[in-house]
Design a protein around this nucleic acid. Structure first.
Lengths: 257, 257
DNA sequence: GCCGGCCTTTCACTGAGTGAAATAGACGCT
DNA sequence: AGCGTCTATTTCACTCAGTGAAAGGCCGGC
């Protein structure tokens, strides 16, 4: 083969799936090939197989989209829908009591992924999307997930530049390190206007059967009417409730994130 | 290669993903190889690549599960999370008004797939699972999806044996054909104790921008206190509301299901 | 000790996958 | 009609990624 050797067929197939993003969920074959860095004929053949299986779907407009079959398989992810199913009742309780945004997230490498969100119609608008990613160092859930992450992950985040979202975002590694220690000491995290200047979030850890932190839950409220200290026990209690349900089910053991 | 020629690498990778089911979401490599009908070394290599990418995750127990990365990609499916996001507010309204189970489903080939469910704590327990499949001929959503499906799909369902769930399940092709005509005439479907003897569901279609039926929404209520004729307008209105939001967004055009 | 599961590595073979090039359709502009 | 640019598919000869039988390694149970 003339192409750069060392590229497996599997990696090409996965690169095609990787080409889809929240910003561009519908792509032509050419776009797909460009993003996956594959020659057009190769992309054409792999895509045809993916469509035949249902991993991709071709719309009337000729563009390809992620297929329902892939969504079905994805829904079997324990850290995705599995976690959501267990957490949702508790999240709804938290929403009923506060009528504020409730968020559930897990860590994937050095980022967080939002698993579920209950957005009150009258609550602060949040820009997060279920299935979307975000940096660990700014949000409440992110601080919790980072505080309890393995050391090597923490170091990776602390040594890389910390993106600034507002003037209150922690971008100094030393300050972040102290903030994480505080999270571990108190058992909850507060992100005060570190993502947007109008919002504040309070987050607590969710633990798996072995006691390791596998997810985080948070309340996002309008900053001006927020009392983090009053909200913390509420969020922590929710976290503990979900941790308990995790202990009794959750497939079985925790996959290493 | 000694193996049966004609099996592409891609098909093997997809077969590995296919091995996971709601009943068995955590598999050892050997189980995985058996279900995908692959020799162990082959499965081992493909699985290693899938794990490296994040499509699969390996737990502390050595079992493989669907990975979060695959859930992320799956969440980009327009007919999955995309549809859910658009429909959820309306579904919540329907729930607030009735406090009964609200279900959202789409058709995939000759079955239906549940996209979302709001299950009231005090409502009839339903056995459906988000991401789960079901036959088209019994449920309310199924009857709607089948009534507006392409002729070849209808014929496929009508000529195959119709599984019986209760004594009221329609298993006669002629009767089913008449039921579907009635659905098309009235614009809604009623499944009266055709899945379980305690539940009744009323369903209405959801249409895409081109007018084609792309999904169905239903209320599932306890049979003894149900009044289908009273519920129908409510469900139909919800269906129309969601259809309207579909017209203005939904990525763009409808993929052929 | 020995067997039954697990899973990974070795090694020589070979056809599935390859991509440049050619083909062909679909649009827009002049 | 003619040209340019975008699409996507098909052809064809080459070759290396993928292959699986067999061997090796690692637990636990008996």
């Amino acid at each position: 083969m003339d192409a750069q050797p060392g590229r497996s067929v599997t990696s090409k197939v996965l690169a095609l799936l990787d080409a889809f993003t929240p910003a561009g969920p519908a792509l032509t074959l050419s776009e797909l090939a460009r993003r996956a860095e594959l020659p057009l004929p190769t992309a054409s053949r792999r895509v045809a197989e993916l469509v035949a299986w249902g991993a991709l779907e071709r719309g009337d407009d000729g563009r390809y989209r992620i297929g329902l079959r892939l969504w079905e398989v994805g829904s079997l992810a324990p850290r995705g829908l599995g976690l959501r199913e267990l957490a949702l009742p508790t999240m709804e309780d938290l929403y009923e009591v506060t009528h504020e945004n409730v968020q559930l997230a897990v860590r994937q490498d050095v980022e967080l992924v939002f698993i579920e969100r209950i957005a009150g119609r009258h609550a602060v608008p949040v820009l997060t999307r279920v299935g979307g990613r975000f940096a660990l160092h700014a949000t409440g859930v992110g601080l919790v997930l980072l505080a309890y992450a393995p050391t090597e992950i923490q170091e990776q985040v602390l040594t890389a530049p910390l993106e600034r979202y507002t003037e209150l975002t922690i971008t100094d590694p030393g300050r972040l390190r102290r903030a994480l220690a505080e999270v571990r000491r108190t058992g909850y995290a507060v992100s005060d206007r570190q993502v947007t200047m109008d919002a504040l979030s309070v987050a607590a850890p969710i633990c798996g059967p072995e006691g390791a932190v596998v997810a985080a839950i948070s309340l996002v409220v309008a900053q001006h009417r927020a009392d983090p200290v009053a909200l913390a026990p509420l969020v922590q209690a929710a976290g503990r409730t979900i941790s308990r349900s995790l202990g009794t089910s959750y497939g079985s053991r925790r996959p290493s994130g």
